[in-house]
Write a protein that binds this DNA or RNA. Sequence first.
DNA 1: GTCTATACTGAGATAGAC
DNA 2: GTCTATCTCAGTATAGAC
Lengths: 207, 207
Amino acid sequence: MIDTKQKILETAERLIGEQGYSGTSLRHIIAEAGVNLAAVHYHFGSKEELLDELILRKAGPVNEERLARLDRLQAEFGSTPPPAEKVLETFLLPMAEAADRDPQFVRLMGRILAEGLMPHVVQRHFQTVSRRMLGALREALPDLSEDEFLWRTHFMIGAMAHTMCGQPDFTGKGGAVGDFQGRIRRLIAFLNGGFHAPARAATVEER
Amino acid sequence: MIDTKQKILETAERLIGEQGYSGTSLRHIIAEAGVNLAAVHYHFGSKEELLDELILRKAGPVNEERLARLDRLQAEFGSTPPPAEKVLETFLLPMAEAADRDPQFVRLMGRILAEGLMPHVVQRHFQTVSRRMLGALREALPDLSEDEFLWRTHFMIGAMAHTMCGQPDFTGKGGAVGDFQGRIRRLIAFLNGGFHAPARAATVEER
DNA sequence: GTCTATACTGAGATAGAC
DNA sequence: GTCTATCTCAGTATAGAC
């Protein structure tokens, strides 16, 4: 049945989004999906390749949207590089919009990034978009040293991953659980401030 | 042998720091330490409690140093709240100094935070210091709304965790693997910029 | 009190029957 | 394509040796 593969994908996405990759066993997935354990290995090969397929299906459209928006942004600005905040928006807003449509997926991606698992899988699906985004960001921030810039993108990835898979402890008051766009707009403002901060480390230790 | 417990702790710290908590089996630990599997459960009860003991031994002194520095900082400033950057330093620098002495531990802690595992264990060891730090940070940033402040601390945790357990991809050039203090000073500058960013993402840059 | 030997359950993976 | 049976290795539990 073609349904089998689809049911595995849907169930895996939901459960991994809820409990993380390591926290979700194939046996849990197949029980909820009502399929046989060996079917997973027949259709995907391994648990890791199941995740790979999941990422491909969900992240692909988002990454295409990102590249399209960056194209438009750079065309709009012509020869002058677009400001960092605009670049951050083309990178982060498509994900936020996808998240409000499909919250499971973004939590899944956040968990993958945060857990640091399968870097080769992540790299394969995101290296094109990340190379272009970081290039555009670099042009917007020509005054930063190369090391400083790389570290700040590292900080950005960490903040982004953590934001994708969780929320702060709103003790007492509920705090909007959904509303990824609002959350991501806050993140963009924060990151923009961070990227434009004076680089004092560079003055303390020279490189 | 009393050495058994110590050997388990040392080996576990090293291996978990290298491969993560989930990626390190007890059987790998006991093989390297040259002890029996059941000895782990005799001394610690479970893999999770072994990690708990590890965190207690290593994070305890760092957290005491953090609180002591915050005390001194607040005493120094009297009734006016110390600026955010100073508060961030009292929170982050003790960890960086410990890291340059003992790199394994900070990578271990970063992995725990990033993997999002055992939140109750993390909470128990860090709730005192985090409550005081966030309180001091809040006083330094009275203009932020409560939600905005909470989200920004969330971004901070993500950037911090990611920075503790990894480094950017210095393609080609090596990039100092150690030097946690330099890395953390860069992070402090970045976070300080983020915390002081205008609350709503403006269409036009103003910095 | 400390540790060893051993067994139990559940994880991912695989071979082969249908 | 699907399913049963089985393999290895994970964390855990316990009885008993010293």
